[in-house]
């Protein structure tokens, strides 16, 4: 890999293996995630797509006793071999979870939470909060009640707040773990439209169990099965013309 192409990918993963104790859940995955695209990870429950996503910001090592090997190249460094500071990594790689869970604080404080620890000057924080809320297309809905509790927002608004919270540390990459699975259809549409707009500025890696969602908003799609990457291709190619029989079975609804 020459330095010229460094600019084009957000992650280069090679032979990634992850185990919980003796139980291996990721069996050697090779995958390159292209910058400023939405990459969808699909597959049945327990296929390892969430585990894979959580390895991309090292969360898998922080919240569990998982062990890993292989290469996850990010920003010119292999996260697995070299000691990457979690603070630096997670400033540049934001994460949005399945259930929208804002902190039990005000809307403003939720968004200001990240910048506060990354050494942002106090006077810059209000501007960052507004910009992040605007980027998450939430600002107009909440501008009059920034200092009210975030728990008073609707589920969809809460999820967009969580996205704004992740954007506030000015990351390059957003990892999203089934961000719409706890939302109603209207909120889902709002979040999907937001994701489409986000890819102008950010690289998005999206885990989803809805194939339609992957087809609607992703540029490329990776299909996981039993901890292995079965197929990865441009989204339209993968859905119209799957190379693998297993992929075809899954997207045509024969299992999963």
């Amino acid at each position: 890999m020459t330095t010229g192409t460094l600019q084009d990918f957000a992650y280069r993963v090679e032979d990634l293996r992850i185990s919980y104790g003796d139980h291996q859940v990721i069996h050697g995955i090779d995958l390159t995630i292209v910058k400023n695209e939405v990459t969808a990870l699909i597959g049945p429950s327990g296929c390892g797509k969430s585990t894979f996503l959580k390895s991309l910001n090292g969360m898998i090592r922080t919240t569990s006793n998982a062990t890993w090997s292989g290469t996850i190249e990010w920003n010119g460094r292999n996260m697995i071999q070299e000691n990457v500071d979690p603070l630096e990594l997670r400033q540049k790689v934001g994460m949005v979870f399945q259930k929208p869970k804002p902190f039990p604080k005000s809307i403003y404080e939720n968004v200001a939470f990240g910048p506060k620890i990354h050494g942002v000057k106090k006077k810059d924080i209000p501007g960052i909060v507004e910009k992040s809320l605007r980027d998450a297309y939430l600002f107009d809905e909440v501008k009059d009640r920034l200092h009210e509790s975030a728990l008073g927002l609707s589920g969809g608004q809460q999820q967009r707040l969580c996205i704004a919270r992740a954007l506030a540390t000015s990351p390059d990459i957003l990892l999203m773990d089934e961000p719409t699975s706890a939302l109603d259809p209207l909120s889902t549409i709002a979040v999907e439209e937001l994701i489409l707009k986000l890819k102008e500025k950010y690289t998005v890696v999206l885990v989803t169990h809805q194939m339609e969602q992957a087809a609607r908003i992703s540029d490329s799609t990776a299909f996981f099965l039993m901890g292995e990457l079965i197929e990865c291709n441009r989204t339209d190619a993968l859905f119209q013309n799957p190379k693998s029989q297993q992929t075809e079975d899954y997207i045509t609804g024969r299992f999963g």
Binding site: T63, L87, Q91, K99, K101, I117, C162
Partner: peptide
């Protein structure tokens, strides 16, 4: 305290200890 709140703090780059003092204890 819901696990998601703790993960939310960690995902923003907070250390375990800072997550405890700023997210878990207030909740």
């Amino acid at each position: 305290v819901p696990l998601e709140l703790k993960e939310g703090g960690l995902a923003l780059g907070y250390t375990h200890w800072r997550t405890i003092t700023t997210v878990l204890l207030p909740s």
